[in-house]
């Protein structure tokens, strides 16, 4: 079965979606990512959708599911590179990607994740979302 490769980069997982996904492939990606987060204990998931030209409610729901499931396993999800036309359309459609962070590109997304993990070089600036990681 066709699958989208998932790269492990330190504590993060990176997925680059290169084409508009068929539903089957999107569903596989959802379950593969969730399995990988649980297996590797990854703390963040980066999904690069810069090559995706259409995000409808189905695709939006998949991104939301990935974020929700990952968060349960203590990993944050960042969607990077959303095309402006896609972003505008999502707003009008009325779809909010709940629990999904967004960033301009992979680099910015990585920074955001590092901040969330509290391993940023810069001491914490304005944290709009506190997560408790005091379990050591």
């Amino acid at each position: 079965m066709e699958r989208i490769p998932i790269l492990k980069m330190g504590p993060f997982l990176l997925v680059t979606i290169q084409v508009d996904l068929y539903d089957r492939l999107a569903l596989n990606l959802e379950s593969d990512l969730i399995n990988m987060v649980s297996k590797t204990g990854a703390r963040g998931v980066l999904i690069d959708i810069s090559a995706v030209s259409i995000v409808d409610s189905f695709m939006g729901r998949i991104l939301g599911n990935i974020a929700t499931m990952s968060r349960i396993m203590d990993a944050e999800t960042v969607v990077v590179g959303m095309q402006p036309a896609v972003a505008i359309t999502l707003v009008e459609l009325g779809l909010t990607l709940q629990g999904v962070h967004t960033a301009l590109d992979v680099e910015k997304g990585m920074e955001l994740l590092q901040e969330k993990m509290g391993i940023s070089e810069h001491p914490e600036q304005d944290e709009e979302e506190d997560q408790d990681d005091s379990n050591d």
Binding site: I54, F58, A85
Partner: peptide, 17 residues
């Protein structure tokens, strides 16, 4: 234009679904 294409195609996608 690209934005209008994206709106149209997204709407169409919802309706075929």
């Amino acid at each position: 234009s690209l934005v209008n294409q994206t709106k149209l195609i997204t709407a169409a996608s919802e309706l075929v679904r």
